[in-house]
Simulated assay, not measured.
Amino acid sequence: MKNVLFSLATLALLSFVTACKGEDKAGGSAGGQPSASAKPAAGGTLTIKGSDTMVILGQRWAEAFMKQHPDMRVQVTGGGSGTGIAALLNGTTEIAMSSRAIKPAEAQQVQTRHKAQAKETAVARDGVTFYVNEANPVKSLTMEQLRSIYLGDTKNWKEVGGPDAPIAVYSRENSSGTYVFVKEIVLGGEDFAAEALTLPGTAAVVNAVAKETHGIGYGGAAYGKGIRELPVRANNEDVAPSQENIQSGKYPLSRDLFFYTRGEPSGTAKAFMDFALSPEGQAVVTQVGYFPVKK
């Protein structure tokens, strides 16, 4: 009887060890989280969510990446930087695209929920650009004039050297990283004017300004099509959102565009990010209309 009991105990122990080894091979752990070195199975899907400013760039990267890796699928969706970071927090995306830096409270939530730091990787350069209709004679605006317009203090174009016409102000939704950037850098943290019309994406802002002769809006430099990009006047000089000015930081609204991951990326996520930062990937940045990240 003792021998039978010993044999049953031994068999149970061997079964437990085998199950643990099988779990390790699948990339799992006791907490159900993939290990840092886990590699995705062929045919797996990488999910990327976030910034509307970056969504076209992300999709172009995905197309080029999948041509090189036909067994891998990459899904890229927008919704705003805040949406992407929220998805990173709740575990529904592997990479969050963001046109703003992650907030300390968000980074702390990543650490608390996932026991991993929010890993920030700059993948491109951009300059937040203010757009006016091609028929608008105003050639440039200072940061103070932009601030006054978006706070609602300046309501007529004649106050800034333009025609006698009310200013139609267009803005982004508050989940947008570009919205947050403009609020912090241009408005000094103050709220946008109540009259500012909120639109769901940069393309919608561009379309509205292209149709509204007296409109003004803002977004990424890559979206400046069908309207005129407005230089920012600083130190008695009109500074355009050109590649040279954005990469050097001379343009006052220059910024980095980011990927965020929970800890160091691995597997398909790392392969995709390495591609985005490769010479081929940075060439896609230029093709879309943004600028290579500073090395």
Score class of each variant (00 low, 15 high):
34 P>F: 10
35 S>H: 14
35 S>P: 13
38 A>Y: 07
39 K>I: 10
39 K>Q: 12
39 K>Y: 08
42 A>C: 05
42 A>L: 03
45 T>A: 02
47 T>Q: 09
48 I>E: 00
49 K>G: 04
49 K>F: 05
49 K>I: 04
49 K>R: 15
52 D>Q: 09
55 V>T: 04
55 V>I: 07
56 I>L: 10
58 G>C: 11
60 R>L: 10
61 W>E: 01
62 A>I: 05
63 E>A: 09
65 F>Q: 03
65 F>P: 06
67 K>M: 12
68 Q>R: 05
69 H>W: 04
69 H>E: 07
69 H>K: 09
70 P>L: 11
71 D>S: 14
73 R>V: 07
73 R>T: 13
74 V>Y: 03
76 V>N: 03
77 T>C: 06
78 G>Y: 06
78 G>W: 01
78 G>S: 13
79 G>I: 12
83 T>R: 10
83 T>H: 03
84 G>N: 08
85 I>R: 09
85 I>W: 02
85 I>E: 02
85 I>D: 03
87 A>R: 05
88 L>T: 13
89 L>E: 13
90 N>R: 15
93 T>S: 04
95 I>M: 02
95 I>F: 04
96 A>G: 11
101 A>L: 15
102 I>F: 15
104 P>V: 00
105 A>L: 11
105 A>K: 07
106 E>R: 13
106 E>F: 11
108 Q>K: 15
109 Q>T: 10
110 V>F: 13
111 Q>W: 07
111 Q>T: 04
111 Q>P: 00
112 T>S: 13
112 T>G: 11
113 R>D: 13
113 R>Y: 14
117 Q>D: 12
119 K>P: 14
120 E>D: 02
120 E>F: 11
121 T>L: 02
122 A>I: 15
123 V>G: 07
124 A>T: 01
124 A>D: 09
125 R>H: 13
130 F>S: 08
130 F>A: 10
132 V>Q: 00
132 V>G: 00
133 N>F: 14
134 E>S: 12
134 E>C: 10
135 A>C: 05
135 A>M: 04
136 N>D: 04
136 N>E: 08
139 K>V: 05
139 K>I: 08
140 S>L: 02
141 L>D: 00
141 L>R: 00
143 M>I: 13
145 Q>C: 01
145 Q>F: 01
147 R>F: 06
149 I>D: 11
150 Y>P: 02
152 G>L: 02
153 D>G: 01
153 D>M: 10
154 T>C: 05
155 K>D: 08
159 E>T: 06
160 V>W: 03
